[in-house]
């Protein structure tokens, strides 16, 4: 059952990801991206990462994609089939980088160490033991707010900078 669900969700994620790129209508692209994100959330659930799945849906599928859709509609891009405006050079570079990224990921998966054992969780079922001890949210919250507190806060600073930047850019009149 789990295996079947894994393949189903992976296929949905990959196929819709391809359609995001291939589709000519911006709104269709956005909708396919939502399917991708939702399938990823399903994969997270299969990995017992319930909290991550919930946050994936709340933040990406529920909020960010709605904003995407909102902007696409506000500019009324939806009904126009955009011609491909990218140059041949850009396409070539994008393809090269894509293949490089895929190769790097494959190499890491084949040669790299298992992330769970790398962090010292060598017990028979590390995920279950952590989940039982701290619950679905505690399992993520404790490392995030103890071990990785500084990177976490730095990331939030980055977001703040992005917000301030967009406000400055969007502002038309002088303050």
């Amino acid at each position: 059952m789990t295996e079947f669900l894994f393949f189903l969700l992976s296929a949905a994620a990959l196929l819709s990801a391809v359609f995001v790129v291939v589709s000519r209508k911006p709104v269709a692209s956005v909708m396919f991206l939502i399917v991708t994100l939702f399938s990823l959330a399903g994969l997270f659930v299969l990995l017992e990462a319930h909290f991550l799945a919930a946050v994936q849906v709340i933040v990406y599928a529920g909020a960010i994609m709605v904003l995407f859709l909102f902007v696409v509609m506000l500019l009324n891009l939806g009904h126009v089939e955009l011609p491909d405006f990218r140059s041949a050079m850009a396409r070539l570079l994008a393809g090269a980088f894509g293949i490089a990224l895929a190769a790097f990921t494959a190499w890491t998966l084949l040669n790299g160490s298992d992330p769970l054992t790398a962090y010292g969780a060598s017990a028979a079922d590390p995920i279950q033991s952590v989940l039982k001890a701290r619950g679905a949210i505690g399992a993520l919250a404790v490392p995030l707010f103890r071990t990785y507190l500084v990177p976490f806060e730095v990331t939030s600073l980055l977001l703040l900078v992005a917000i301030i930047g967009s406000v400055v850019l969007a502002r038309k009149e002088a303050p």
Partner: peptide
């Protein structure tokens, strides 16, 4: 569900589509 009312927020945010 283990994520409780986070599920409510997640599904609730889908209503807008």
């Amino acid at each position: 569900v283990p994520v409780g009312f986070l599920y409510v927020l997640a599904i609730g945010s889908f209503g807008v589509y």
